[in-house]
Design a protein around this nucleic acid. Structure first.
Lengths: 143, 143
DNA sequence: TGTAATATGTTTATGGGGGAATACAATCAT
DNA sequence: ATGATTGTATTCCCCCATAAACATATTACA
C-alpha cells in the first residue's frame, strides 16, 4: 500500500531517486506508464499483467482499439530500481508528463504517481477547491 | 511482451538497428509485413502462426476477406536479425510505410511496429485519444 | 569473365545509461 | 544542541548501444 507525498528531483539524464519508503515495496521489476491527468503511473507487475490480459483481446482490426493499445504499450516500460535507488524515466515519458527537474512522487493505494511539481500544484489547487464537492459525489459511487 | 518507444534511423541500404530490448525477444526468425495505418508490423513466429490460423478461417468467398488476406500475406516476409543487431527492410515495405531515414519503433503488446517518424507524429496528433476517451475505455474494460 | 550493383560485414566515434564516490540535507537519539 | 544515521542530490567515469562510414563478398548482367 503506497501513501505519502515526496518532493524529489530528476537529474540531467532523467533519473529519479525513488523515495526510500516506496523502494522497499518495489524490490523487483515494475511498470511505468503514461497515466491520466498528465502524470506517470507506476504499477507493480501483477497489477500490470491484469491490464495486459484485457488489452491483448482487443482486435487490431478496429481503429480505436489499435490506437488505444498503441498508446498504452508504447507509453509503457518495464524497469527496476538501480543500485543507487534510482529509476530512469525515458524522454517520451518525461515529455508526456512535462517533467523537467522538480517532481512530486505520491503514493496512491496500489500505485505510485510521478508528477511534474508544477502540474501537481495546479492540479491540487483546482481539486482542493472542490474537495467537498467531490466527496459528495462519492455517495453515488457507494462510498 | 513488447512495449516502449524508440527513435532509430535506417541507413542508406534500408537497414535498421532493432532496439536491444526487442532483440532479446526475437532471438530467432520472425515476420515483417505491411501493417495498418501505414506502418510495418513485426511478429514473432508463434504469434504469426496464431494470426495465420485466424485468417485461414475467413471465408475466401467474401470479397473483403480475400482482399485483406492478400494484403496481409503478400506483404509478409520472414527475416532475422543480423550479427550487428540489424534488420533489412526491403524497398517495397519502406515505400509502403514511407520510411526514409528517421523511424520510430514501438512495442505494441504481441507485436512490434515500425513507423516513419513523420507518420507516427501525425498519427499521434490525429488519433491520439483524449484522456477522457482513454478513461472511458479503461472503465469499459474494467480497469 | 569482368564490371557494376547490391548485399553483407567490419570498424570507429559518439552519446546515453549505469555505477561509484562525494557532498549535502534531514531526521533521530542521546 | 550536538553528533550519528539515513536519505537525497550532484559529479565524474566507464561501458555498451547506436549510427555512420568504410570494406568485403555476392549477384546480375553485359
Amino acid at each position: 500500500m503506497f501513501m505519502g507525498e515526496y518532493n524529489h528531483t530528476v537529474d540531467k539524464k532523467g533519473r529519479l531517486i525513488m523515495p526510500a519508503k516506496f523502494r522497499e515495496m518495489l524490490n523487483d521489476k515494475f511498470i511505468i506508464t503514461k497515466g491520466l491527468d498528465h502524470c506517470l503511473f507506476v504499477y507493480p507487475i501483477d497489477e500490470w499483467e491484469f491490464i495486459e490480459q484485457k488489452l491483448r483481446s482487443l482486435p487490431f482490426t478496429q481503429k480505436d482499439a489499435r490506437a488505444f493499445v498503441r498508446f498504452f504499450f508504447s507509453g509503457a516500460l518495464e524497469t527496476e530500481i538501480d543500485k543507487q535507488g534510482r529509476i530512469l524515466i525515458p524522454p517520451n515519458l518525461r515529455e508526456f508528463a512535462k517533467i523537467n527537474k522538480e517532481v512530486v512522487v505520491i503514493g496512491v493505494s496500489t500505485r505510485i504517481e510521478i508528477w511534474s511539481r508544477e502540474e501537481w500544484e495546479s492540479y491540487r489547487n483546482d481539486a482542493e477547491l472542490s474537495y467537498e464537492q467531490i466527496a459528495e459525489k462519492m455517495v453515488e459511487l457507494g462510498l
